[in-house]
């Protein structure tokens, strides 16, 4: 029982998020950072996360969530990770409540549908496909926000890692990047009006960056009954990183600078701290959230 408690503490340990403002912005000593586990010759993933209200905003509407399950042994459970970033919007605390509720609901649905099933000694045969689970989780998050937070909405980018496959569910303009061999690929598509007009060549990137409606989304959690969720699967890269972030990071720190920070930091936690610091150094116009997952070489 004691072991079980320790195990549960272990896998839920990352749920504790530093309150905004208390984030260390100076690079951490590498010795303070947790190394990858060596699991019978195979290294585990390493995760970092950081968040900041930013300079210009007085409250934080972003929410992040990280849950990692490592297992080793002859009958080991598959590698498991759940990473969520949500960026809420709406007045009167509606934004922060919307992002919190959507993250809570999504985490509940996805843990119930995946890792909690893995703990069963006699697994049931009726597991839903991962795409369906993610779609249902985000739809459930949408229903929760519509019912509980009138006037609120949120982006939500959810990455689920199970045994060699990453699957990402996405609504809004937070982003998931895959960074491999010094190159980054955006796995998600921003559901913002300005990005859409830019894709169509109706706005130049410069016009888009300064457009007054650049925060207007055409798709978000909490905006009506019918939610269309983007879902994409990707094999886990052989080395490299997955970055989830809100527009407080990607809208402020250029992509090449994000890559430079990740590769020069040496550890995902140090990289996240530095990414947040860079966004604040550039004015910190919005809440900043970053979750970085480092994958070991295969």
């Amino acid at each position: 029982m004691d072991f079980l408690n320790r195990f549960i503490k272990r896998i839920f340990r990352r749920e504790e998020i530093h309150p905004p403002g208390s984030i260390k912005t100076a690079p951490l000593e590498p010795s303070h950072l947790e190394p990858a586990w060596d699991l019978d010759g195979q290294q585990s993933i390493v995760v970092g996360a950081a968040q900041s209200t930013g300079i210009e905003r007085d409250h934080n509407e972003d929410t992040l969530f990280v849950l990692v399950g490592n297992s080793a042994g002859q009958e080991a459970l598959p590698e498991f990770g759940l990473f969520l970033v949500a960026d809420g919007m709406g007045g009167h605390r509606a934004g922060e409540i919307a992002s919190a509720i959507s993250v809570r609901t999504t985490a509940h649905c996805l843990t119930e549908g995946t890792i909690l099933r893995l703990f069963e000694n006699e697994p049931k045969e009726d597991a839903l496909p991962i795409h369906d689970l993610i779609r249902q989780a985000l739809e459930e998050a949408n229903r929760s926000v519509v019912a509980r937070v009138p006037g609120g909405g949120t982006t939500l980018t959810a990455a689920l890692l199970i045994s060699g496959q990453l699957t990402i569910g996405h609504v809004g303009d937070s982003r998931a990047y895959l960074i491999v061999d010094g190159k980054s690929e955006i796995l998600t598509r921003d559901h913002s009006l300005v990005e859409r007009l830019r894709e169509l060549g109706q706005l130049t990137p410069e016009e888009a960056a300064s457009h007054p409606q650049r925060n207007v989304l055409y798709r978000a959690i909490g905006q009506g009954a019918n939610l269309e969720v983007d879902i994409i699967s990707h094999p886990v890269p052989d080395g490299g990183y997955l970055l989830l972030c809100s527009d407080g990071l990607w809208g402020v720190v250029p992509d090449h600078e994000i890559r430079r920070i990740i590769y020069s930091s040496g550890h995902p936690q140090a990289a996240c701290d530095e990414l947040v610091r860079a966004a604040n150094a550039a004015g910190g116009p919005d809440n900043i959230t970053a979750v970085l997952v480092g994958f070991p070489p295969k």
Binding site: P78, A127, P129, I130, H131, I162, G164, Q165, T167, I231
Partner: peptide, 9 residues
């Protein structure tokens, strides 16, 4: 998924 037979979609 090839390692454990998880249905991805």
């Amino acid at each position: 998924e090839i390692e454990n037979g998880w249905q991805v979609w």
